[in-house]
Structures are given as structure tokens and as C-alpha cells.
Write a protein that binds this DNA or RNA. Structure first.
Length: 849
RNA sequence: GGGCGCUUAGCUCAGUUGGCUAGAGCAUCUCGUUUACACCGAGAGGGUCGGGGGUUCGAAUCCCUCAGCGCCCACCA
């Protein structure tokens, strides 16, 4: 088969993927030790970004590697309904049509979004195929599949029965833009320069005033008290007295509470239970009323007429103006504090009171901490374990409720006659149900997406049901972005341990962000996004994968640019051309016999590839992807292409050449699946899929012969180096006296070192090559030789310095006593070599003088 | 206020428990059309591993300290 001169990935990739998929190669084989990894489900209606390509690439390398090593390997794919994310997109669609969520019932909205997602869902899955993901598609799970909902309800019920679920009125993080509450970790905290206003509240039954300090004057209308520290001498006597709230005339009490810090602000705090979590707690302790002045849509309510309906920002300005007019602002100071922002809209989060479902997660977190303490889960990088521990030690109750229709409905019903009577029931498609003669109305909220995602490993493996894939739980390898450590990894560990009693995965690998070439975050607005699909179209899927994993270490954000993809593309082309050479050399009908090493180069390349294989294994077994890929890259490019292929032009060893090609393809396959399989399919002697081939097995070789080839290399390298440093671009001849290595490899040496000829002579002349244990001269004229003298002198000087260093190391008694024997031996050998070299160089200089 | 990480060649980064002359890709310079590949080959230059101190026979690697940068967590108005 004639291969084109350059590898054109687009011509082959889709067919190769189809070939794999049709053959069933992605499915677990059922034999061997189980190895499993679960896909962090990409948004079903989204497009893959560069992070996904890295994410999937890393897992796919491992799965392909394990598969070849004989594991019963599975990569379980998924698709995420991405509750809130998708909802935000869909709500925009509604707005375009001038519609609002309030025009529809939950069921109507749910089915509308379902259709919306369904239309675009194929996209993401096609893209996963384009990046070469060898996922077991038959086992794909969508996060709204029935079995997911069933399992989630089961978990919810268990938590409910264990008394860990409660419904309560709390201050929640509320997005007034999207009209839903958030979990704590979905709030972005930003440090901001603001103001602290000191406002005087006049006393009612006494002369004087009390000055409070606040950053949020607009919430003043919701004030129900002023709190001071019980021991504060400034205010002690005022406790129990009343003040008049400016602008409203409302009378509110001065109360005492330990929570107040005497040293902050004025030592007097306005208490607004409806709009501040601390105040909420104070309010509960003192049995204060709650006055909500900011509505769920972000506008003012329950205020004097002039402020009604204003947005928070405007309300603040007008309030301040009004207070100014009443002359009650005593001071205005600059103040830096953190403000919570909606991670999606960028608008401030409002703390508002809402009835929500909470999970008391402390007991689950404690269990997870135990697992961490027992090292049941290994983290890559290890430092993330402490980050996770810190998070687990500080978790607060988890707000599970979301006020959006696109998600898994919370299976709870409320007694219409008794608001405190809630029951668990799965009939969420009915608005009202009757149980024991009582009528119950359903909860309209849905679950936080992460509540179901947190159960992903045991859902996708059907562990609770004991399904076909249940043997894969706990999963072997979990890999995702560092940003998901708390929102996903932590929850999977907690919910996995709680529900199954087992850790959900043994190893966690976290990758950093893929940044642009200037280490900036990629974003559409900056226009610095590298689109994986465009890269694939231009350079090929393998090129992208190779480029992404190069020089990348776990947990570290790293810059990325097209250069790396191009380097990957070039490597694929190199592989391609190796194959082209080999196939041409072997002929169209070649059928290999058992390969046996004959030439020195044969022994050497077996040694090289075996060493590379071992280093790839070591690296991949500890998830050092970049290192594994680098070993593979250099073994093939430097070892196979630059030396072995060149050598094989002179010394024929067809069976071994075939072995070298197939071994190279196998070693490269996890990293560059498409090009290796494409080549594999062109080999006249194979009738299989590379993806299902076993990992290479070793071949016998002779260490000494391999070492001999290294000596040829040394000679060649020296001849090249000296030739290139000589004036002009002549080809020189090589002269030698008695040297069987040179004698036996004349042609090879001549070709590799680009020599005019290699000749045996009785009387040597010219320039002696500085290679230990070799007697060889470049046949140069006397003039050239003279010009080369400074060169020689320099080498002599550096060699002297080297010898000195080695001698002093060996002269150090502590070194001899404490350093390992092999190191000392090595040092001694180095010294001997250098000494021999210096003898040769000195001899050369004497001749010149 | 806590925690994590980074500082190594012009650029972007590797460097596993301390141990060969500290590496890679890209970039730079010189030479080259040898029947796989110019998406190539051969060769070269370029680093006191952020500063200082310590432990050690030996430190980019471990410890202390200083400086600069980045990220995450946190309900003090």
C-alpha cells in the first residue's frame, strides 16, 4: 500500500473511529482485572472546550493503556442536563420570544427544555468521538435518565429517614436575576472598596442618639433593632431603650448581644434579620420580627412610598440622599470588604430568607475525613488532599433547593392543612396527592445538580442494583479539573461513602486550567479561545492530544499554544513516514517471521524500546502523563527514526524492522490513537485492530551488542561534531588502523557520519577523534589541522577541569564511605574515560607542535 | 483572617523518594535537496534553577528566611 507523503488526519480519523466503535472495542471485555473511569458528563447541549479535550485525553490515554495491558477496562460516558447552566440558556430563548417562566407550569417548561436539549445533544457526543474518546457508548448515562432519578430519590429518602434532611427558613444566597437560590460555593466573593456609613438613630425616651455603622444603608427599612455588646460601657445604659428609625419613624429597641464587636465601627449594629445571615441569627435569639425590604426580583418593598420598586443600587443612593437631608449621617469612611456575587450574572447576591431543603452534611463530611485520614483515596497532586480536608472540616449545611424547573424534582409534599407536615413521596408528576386521608401539595423546587452528580460513580456503574457494570465500583480513576474539587469530588466522596459504604474511586487526578499562550484565562470576550474542533480540523486529533498533555503536571494551570499542537502534528507525520519507509522496504506482501536480533543496531533498538516501554509504564502507573509521552516521543523519534531507520538502510533485518514498527505503534497508541491505528490498518501482515492489541512483549537481545552500537554512535557523533566545526563544508574520510568495530561497520559509519570514505591505513595522519578506546582520524590537511588547534586546546582545558572535579569527588572520604557503590563505580569509570581522552588530545597537540 | 501553589534557557514548562555534564517543545544561529519525512536531517549557542542562610559527601529537589506573582476558602456590620 502506498502511503501519501504526509499524514492527512482528516482523511482517516472518522473512519478509524467508526471502525473502533463498530467492532465493539470500547466495551469492557469481561476478562482481566477491572479498570474503570467515569466521564465527568459534559453539558448535553453544549460544545466541548479545550479543557474537555485535556480532560478526556488524559482518561483516554489511561483507558487505552490499561486495555492493551489486558485489563477489563471501561470508560463510562455521560451527558449532563446541567440544570442551572442549561436553564440560563433556555431562559434567554424564552426572553427572545417575549415569554417568561411564569407563563408555564413546571411540566411544560421541563418538556420544552428537554426538547431544546435533545436537538443539540448529538453535537457533544460527536465531538467526544472526534477527540478520540474510547468510551463505552452503550453504557452512556444522561443525568435525567430514570435510573439516575430513582437512585437520587433513594439517597434522598435514606438521608431523610436518617434525619439529615430538613426544610427550614434560612438566609440563602439568592440570585435576583435568575430567581433561584445558590449553594455557598456558587457565590463568588470579591474584595471591594466600599464605604462604611455612620448613621445616627435618635433615642426616643432619652435625649441623644445612637450611631450605627453600615455598608448597606438601603436595608435600613428592614431594621428591627440596634444591637450593642452587653458589656460595652458606652451603651450599657441604653439597653432596653428605644430609638427611632430615620425616614420611617418606626420605633425599634436597643438590644444586647455578644455577637457585636465593640471595636468595629461604632460598636452599635443595626439588625436586619431578613437581609443578613448574622442578623438573622440575632433576630432568632431575640425573637425579633423579620421585615423583608428587598423582594426576590431585587426591588424594594415595604419601604416608604418614595423607595418602593427601586432596584437596590438606586435605593441605596436615594436612601443616602434622604438621610443626608435629615442630617443623620455622622461619618462616611472608606472600607474594604468582600461582597458576594452571582457567579453567572456577575450581579450581587442577595441574602434573603427562604424556605429551602437542607442537607445536614457534617456526618457525611466526617466519614469522608476518616477515609482521607486512612489514605483510602490517593490524590494527584497530593497537596489537594489538604485543600479538600480543609473544605470538609468547614462545611455548612447544603442547600439542595433550586427554584428552576430544569432538574430533578424534589420528591416532597406538604400537608395543605399543616405547613409543618412534610412527607417523602416520589409521585412528583402529581400536584396533589392524598395520603392517609390528608391532602398534600408537592414541592415545586428541583435539586441542585451537584446532588445528583455527587452520586455519579455508583449511579453509572449500577452498583446499588448489582448491574453488569457493578464490578467496576469503586472506580479506579477519577480525573477532573481542580476547580471541581469541592463542588464535585468532595460530594462524590461523601455521598458515595454514605450510600454505598465504599469510597467512589481509589485515585483522584486533578488537572489545572488550560490557559492561553500568555497564561491568561481563555474566554470568548478576550478572543483567545482555542477551539478543539478547529484544532482537530487543522492539525488532527492526535496532534491536539499530544500537544495538550506535553509538559503538563497535575493541578497546575498551564499556558498552551498552537506551537504545541504543531509539535504533535509533526510527530504524527514522523510516525507516518517511519511506516512509509518500513512498508516500502518490506514490500507489499511481506509476512514477518519471529524477529531475531542480528545487527548491532537490532540489539540496540530492542534495548531502547524496552527501556522506553518500562519508563512509559512507570510513568503511566503513577499518572505522569507528560513524562510517559515524552519517553514515547524520544524513543520513536530519536531512537527509531534517527538511528535505527538510518542504520537499517545499510544493514537489512526485515523481521526486526517490522517488530520495531509494530512496537512503536503500540507504545504510541494511547497517546496518538488515530495515526497509529491508521498505520496499523495498512500493515500487510496484520488483520486486527491496534486498539485491541496487547501491549508489547519484550524480545531477547544482547547487552554487549547493544553497547557496541552505542560505541558506533559515539564515534559517529564525534566525527559529525568535528566535521561541522572544521572550516568549509567538505566531506572527510575516516582513517583507522586496527579496529574491528570500525572494520565491521564501515558502511554504516560512513553513511551516518556523512564521510567520504572509511579506510584502513598503516600510518595514521590527520585529526584524531576524541573517543575513548577508539583509534580513528579524520583525514584532514595540515592547514586545517592547524586551524583546529585552538579547538583542541579548549577541549583539553575543559577535560582537565572535569578530571579535577572527578578526582576531588573520589578523594573525598565521606563520599567514598556514604555514597552508594554504583555511583562511586560510575565516577571511577568517568575518570578513566576522561583520562584516556586527555591522553589522546595531548598526543594530538604534540603532533601539531 | 486561613489555606494552596508558582518563581529553572528568549518564550511556555518538565524535572518521581536528594545522586551521571539540569531537560523538552517552540524560537535563534551554521550547514545540508543522502532513494521515509523540509510537518526534514546534522551541528551549535543559550541557565550562578528568584535572593540569602542552613542540613548533607552531594541540593533545582529537604529546612529557615526575604522578595515578587497567582489561585482558593471565610456570614464581622
Amino acid at each position: 500500500m502506498n502511503l501519501a507523503k504526509a499524514y492527512e488526519p482528516n482523511q482517516y480519523e472518522p473512519n478509524i473511529y467508526a471502525l473502533w466503535e463498530k467492532s465493539g472495542a470500547f466495551r469492557p471485555t469481561g476478562t482481566g482485572e477491572p479498570f474503570s473511569t467515569v466521564m465527568p458528563p459534559p453539558n448535553a447541549n453544549g460544545n466541548l472546550h479545550i479543557g474537555h479535550a485535556l480532560d478526556m485525553g488524559l482518561k483516554d490515554i489511561l483507558v487505552r493503556y490499561k486495555r492493551m495491558r489486558g485489563y477489563d477496562a471501561v470508560f463510562i460516558p455521560g451527558a449532563d442536563h446541567a440544570g442551572f447552566e442549561t436553564w440560563v440558556v433556555y431562559e434567554k430563548e424564552l426572553q427572545k420570544k417575549n415569554q417568561s417562566r411564569f407563563d408555564f407550569t413546571r411540566e411544560q417548561l421541563y418538556s420544552q427544555v428537554w426538547n431544546f436539549v435533545e436537538q443539540q445533544r448529538g453535537n457533544m457526543e460527536l465531538q467526544l468521538r472526534a477527540i478520540g474518546t474510547s468510551a463505552s457508548w452503550d453504557d452512556l448515562v444522561f443525568t435525567l435518565d430514570e435510573k439516575v432519578i430513582k437512585t437520587v430519590y433513594g439517597t434522598f429518602k435514606k438521608l431523610w429517614d436518617d434525619g439529615l434532611i430538613y426544610r427550614g427558613e434560612r438566609i440563602v444566597n439568592y440570585s435576583t436575576k435568575f430567581q433561584t437560590s445558590y449553594a455557598d460555593i456558587e457565590v463568588d466573593h470579591k474584595l471591594e472598596k466600599g464605604k462604611l456609613w455612620h448613621i445616627a438613630y435618635p433615642l426616643i425616651d432619652k435625649i441623644g442618639e445612637i450611631v450605627i455603622a453600615t455598608t448597606r444603608p438601603e436595608t435600613l427599612f428592614g431594621d428591627v433593632a440596634v444591637a450593642v455588646h452587653p458589656e460595652d460601657p458606652r451603651y450599657k445604659e441604653l439597653i432596653g431603650h428605644y430609638v427611632q428609625l430615620p425616614l420611617t419613624g418606626k420605633e425599634i429597641p436597643i438590644i444586647a448581644d455578644d455577637y457585636v464587636d465593640q471595636n468595629f465601627g461604632t460598636g452599635a449594629v443595626k439588625i436586619t434579620p431578613a437581609h443578613d445571615p448574622n442578623d438573622f441569627e440575632v433576630g432568632k435569639r431575640h425573637n425579633l420580627p423579620r421585615v423583608q425590604v428587598i423582594d426576590f426580583d431585587g426591588t424594594m418593598i415595604n419601604t416608604p412610598q418614595q423607595f418602593l420598586g427601586l432596584d437596590v443600587d438606586t435605593a441605596r443612593k436615594r436612601t443616602l440622599a434622604a438621610l443626608q437631608a435629615e442630617e443623620v449621617i455622622r461619618k462616611e469612611e472608606d472600607y474594604e470588604h468582600t461582597v458576594g456575587y452571582d457567579y453567572k450574572s456577575g450581579l450581587p447576591i442577595q441574602p434573603l430568607i427562604k424556605d429551602q431543603w437542607f442537607l445536614n452534611i457534617k456526618p457525611l463530611a466526617e466519614r469522608a475525613l476518616q477515609a482521607l485520614d486512612n489514605d483510602e483515596i490517593t490524590f494527584f497532586p497530593t497537596s489537594r488532599k489538604n485543600v479538600l480536608r480543609q473544605y470538609l472540616e468547614n462545611v455548612h449545611d447544603w442547600n439542595l433547593s433550586r427554584q428552576i424547573p430544569w432538574g430533578i424534582p424534589i420528591p416532597a409534599f406538604q400537608n395543605v392543612n399543616d405547613p409543618n407536615d412534610w412527607i417523602f413521596n416520589e409521585h412528583v408528576d402529581e400536584k396533589r396527592i392524598t395520603v392517609d386521608g390528608k391532602i398534600y401539595q408537592r414541592e415545586e423546587d428541583t435539586f441542585d445538580t451537584w446532588f445528583s452528580s455527587g452520586q455519579w460513580p455508583f449511579i453509572t456503574t449500577d452498583y446499588l442494583e448489582g448491574g453488569d457494570l457493578s464490578r467496576f465500583y469503586p472506580t479506579s480513576f477519577m480525573e477532573t479539573g481542580t476547580d471541581l474539587l469541592d463542588r464535585w469530588i468532595a460530594r462524590m466522596i461523601m455521598l458515595g461513602l454514605y450510600t454505598t459504604g465504599k469510597i467512589p474511586f481509589k485515585d483522584v487526578y486533578l488537572h489545572g486550567m488550560v490557559l492561553d499562550e500568555h497564561s491568561q484565562k481563555m474566554s470568548k470576550s478576550k478572543g483567545n479561545v482555542i477551539n478543539p474542533m478547529e484544532s482537530i480540523a487543522e492539525y488532527g486529533s492526535d496532534a491536539l492530544r499530544l500537544g495538550l498533555i506535553a509538559s503538563r503536571s497535575p493541578g497546575q494551570n498551564q499556558a498552551f499554544s498552537n506551537d504545541r499542537i504543531i509539535a504533535g502534528r509533526n510527530f504524527c507525520n514522523k510516525l507516518w513516514n517511519i511506516a512509509r519507509f518500513v512498508e516500502h522496504k518490506l514490500g507489499e506482501n511481506y509476512q514477518p517471521s519471529q524477529p531475531v536480533a542480528k545487527t548491532l543496531a537490532d540489539h540496540w533498538i530492542i534495548n531502547e524500546l524496552t527501556a522506553a516501554q518500562q519508563s512509559i509504564e512507570r510513568a503511566l502507573d503513577s499518572y505522569r502523563f507528560a513524562e510517559a509521552s515524552e519517553s514515547m516521543y524520544h524513543a520513536i523519534w530519536d531512537g527509531v527514526a534517527d538511528w535505527y531507520i538510518e542504520a537499517s538502510k545499510d544493514q537489512d533485518s526485515p523481521d526486526l524492522l517490522a517488530w520495531v514498527l509494530t512496537t512503536s505503534l503500540k507504545l504510541a497508541h494511547p497517546f496518538a490513537p488515530f495515526v497509529t491505528e491508521t498505520i496499523w490498518q495498512t500493515l500487510p501482515w496484520v488483520n486486527s485492530l491496534l486498539i485491541s492489541e496487547p501491549w508489547p512483549s519484550s524480545l531477547a537481545y544482547d547487552d554487549i551488542a547493544a553497547g557496541e552500537f552505542s560505541r558506533v554512535q559515539q564515534l559517529v557523533t564525534e566525527a559529525r561534531f568535528v566535521s561541522s566545526s572544521l572550516p568549509g563544508n567538505e566531506k572527510y574520510g575516516l582513517l583507522y588502523q586496527t579496529d574491528s568495530l570500525i572494520e565491521d561497520n564501515k558502511d554504516l559509519i560512513q553513511r551516518l557520519a556523512k564521510l567520504k570514505e572509511v579506510t584502513r591505513v598503516d600510518q595514521a595522519r590527520g585529526l584524531r577523534l576524541a573517543v575513548a578506546s577508539r583509534e580513528a582520524w579524520l583525514d584532514v590537511s595540515t592547514e586545517t589541522l592547524t586551524e583546529h588547534q585552538t579547538n583542541l586546546e579548549q577541549r583539553l582545558a575543559t577535560t582537565h577541569a572535569d578530571i579535577k572535579a572527578l578526582e576531588s569527588r573520589l578523594g573525598n572520604e565521606s563520599y567514598i564511605q556514604k555514597a552508594p557503590a554504583h555511583l562511586i563505580e560510575e565516577t571511577q569509570k568517568q575518570l578513566r574515560d576522561k583520562q584516556e581522552l586527555i591522553g589522546q588530545l595531548q598526543h594530538e597537540l604534540e603532533i601539531l607542535r
